[in-house]
Design a protein around this nucleic acid. Structure first.
Lengths: 344, 344
DNA sequence: CTGAAAGCGCTAACAC
DNA sequence: GTGTTAGCGCTTTCAG
């Protein structure tokens, strides 16, 4: 339709201002007039021109979702999949349009990012999977448009939403300790990520609170992948832990595979706790105890915070830590003392 | 930056028209002037305002990617993951911005879609995973903006890019037949999808060309999922096929699991061919022979066709069928005659 | 080759 | 309550 406000106004016998008022839900329009205008709009299928609208309002209703180059392999990761869905759903509901920026490589990142951030095309930006010393975050300091990071960034003064990685890992440690396990190992996530770092620290803290150490040989780090969990678990086995906390469910799945191969029964011979609570961890045999994080809600919070920033309701930086939850399943379903007997 | 063309012009000592010409790469600007302007633009970091630009040009450079509600579970499907990456990469390269429309449910679809299509915010639309009698496609008939469908739609007059499902399934059939197999079963995809239908028809056609039938009891349909492949394979086993073509690699993986459980060796006791060629099929044990489809390229073609439609270079409907390729791996790595001996 | 001027469709004072 | 008017920042004739 190439209809304009003027056209609708003519059809309804009013001026374009009145039509504009009706469209923007302003109260100062007589009911009869309002209804007449709405009827014309309905009949014609008129939709306001987005460009003209944002030219004058300075807002587009579009928010950008940036996924940096290095995460492409992670794109089919259920975590990202759900995060994107959460962001998309919240964005739809808030009346925003979502633009996706999947940078293929650093050059593309460097070339596109500045334009994206200054063209006025976006009201704000959600940044995911930032790394330590992320160049995107650095460039952002210029402060063009509001930005919300998902996950804790390693710089100050940035709004972000994160899950309680520290608290979750702490829960995992005390849970295993409370079951009577003594040699509790860690299958860590990369400490080059803040999530990995926070989970490590929380875990150590939790152990310490129970009077337990984390000997260096009881910690092997992976990279979130199933394969890395498998490899790390095999290394860990040499040092005979009686329980293991894997910093992601995917790694826990890899660990489980290694344990099966080694003929070690879970949970009878070794307890296992993962992190994330994504689908998959509950369907394994045995099902895996995990720290469930609210991925979809995290995405939604990011959208809402961003909108608050955009509308000026809030002023940066805003930080929100989403709670996590210990979900006890078969892989730690029994206390150390009763280990050896089957789980019902 | 709140700089405008006027500002840049003043700084460079020219009018805003000249600056506009420089930005839009029009030749009619003296070299010296052009360079002076470019220098100012570089120094100030000026970026043209997208809204103003598209208000006058009628174009936004934004293309939409629509993924209907029912596919959410499929979002972490490697197929979609790669398709989106292909579309995103091509879109970045073509200077487009990609907007993602993930509809959560039919209502959202019905509410948002008309607005999306008429707000002038999008230059064009790529539609994925359309179903038979898709309401989106129906609404599209109004013909607001150019649309390209990925996958064969079930209506006429729509531009689309598809892979050669028919030809691929045909190759699978003749491949298995050439190896000497006689009772070749089908683990089909839903015939409520054009891909499932085309793969079925191609397969039957291929068998027929080799003088083989497809008895009804040698065909069980799944829904693309691993679990459905597992279930369907178990049903199929009762009728003792000596080879099976699964209409997707994921289903082939499920079938493989069922075969392992049943103690049936692949390829010694039964040959298996999948479809898609996505990562995962090559890492299974045994690795699975498959029909590889060029997912990334398919996405890229969709973007290019859409841009041709948008710029008027082409006029709808444009149809393009991407070639597929038989990739022979372990699961069919031997001829029927030598079956029973190990594959080297 | 370059500048002046006229809008693109909309919102938001400002009148009436 | 409603209409009039003046731009938002840009592209594009049209002059010169």
């Amino acid at each position: 339709m190439n209809l304009t406000l003027e056209d609708i106004g003519r059809l309804a016998g009013v001026s374009r201002s009145t039509v504009s008022r009706v469209i923007n839900d302003q109260d100062s329009v007589r009911l009869a007039v309002r209804e007449r205008v709405q009827e014309v709009i309905r009949l014609t299928g008129y939709t306001p021109n987005a460009a003209a609208r944002s030219l004058v309002s300075g807002r587009t209703g579009v928010i950008g979702l940036v996924i940096p180059s290095r995460v492409h392999s992670l794109f089919e990761d259920p975590y990202f999949s759900r995060l994107i869905q959460g962001i998309s759903a919240a964005s739809n509901q808030a009346g925003n349009t979502l633009s996706l920026f999947l940078f293929q490589n650093e050059e593309e990142e460097a070339e596109l990012y500045p334009r994206v951030i200054t063209s006025g095309f976006l009201d704000g930006l959600i940044l995911t999977a930032t790394r330590m010393a992320d160049p995107l975050l650095a460039r952002t300091a210029v402060g063009e448009i509001p930005i919300v990071v998902v996950g804790r960034p390693d710089v100050e003064g940035v709004s972000y939403v994160d899950v309680d990685n520290r608290g979750g890992a702490l829960k995992a440690a005390t849970h295993l300790s409370s079951l009577g396990y003594q040699r509790i190992g860690l299958l860590g996530a990369p400490v080059s990520t803040t999530a990995g770092l926070d989970r490590l620290n929380g875990f150590v803290e939790g152990l310490a609170a129970c009077g337990l150490p984390l000997p260096p040989d009881l910690r092997v780090d992976g990279d979130f992948s199933e394969a890395s969990g498998y490899v790390a678990m095999r290394k860990l086995l040499a040092h005979q832990p009686d329980a293991v906390f894997a910093a992601s469910d995917t790694m826990a799945l890899g660990a489980l595979r290694a344990l099966k191969e080694a003929g070690i029964r879970v949970p009878q011979d070794m307890a296992l706790v993962g992190f994330d609570g994504l689908p998959g961890s509950e369907n394994s045999v045995p099902s895996i105890t995990t720290i469930r994080q609210p991925v979809t809600e995290t995405g939604a919070r990011a959208v809402h915070i961003l909108n608050d920033l955009v509308t000026g309701v809030a002023t940066a930086p805003i930080v929100e830590i989403m709670p996590v939850e210990l979900v006890i399943r078969e892989s730690s379903g029994t206390s150390r003392d009763s280990a050896g007997s089957d789980v019902e």
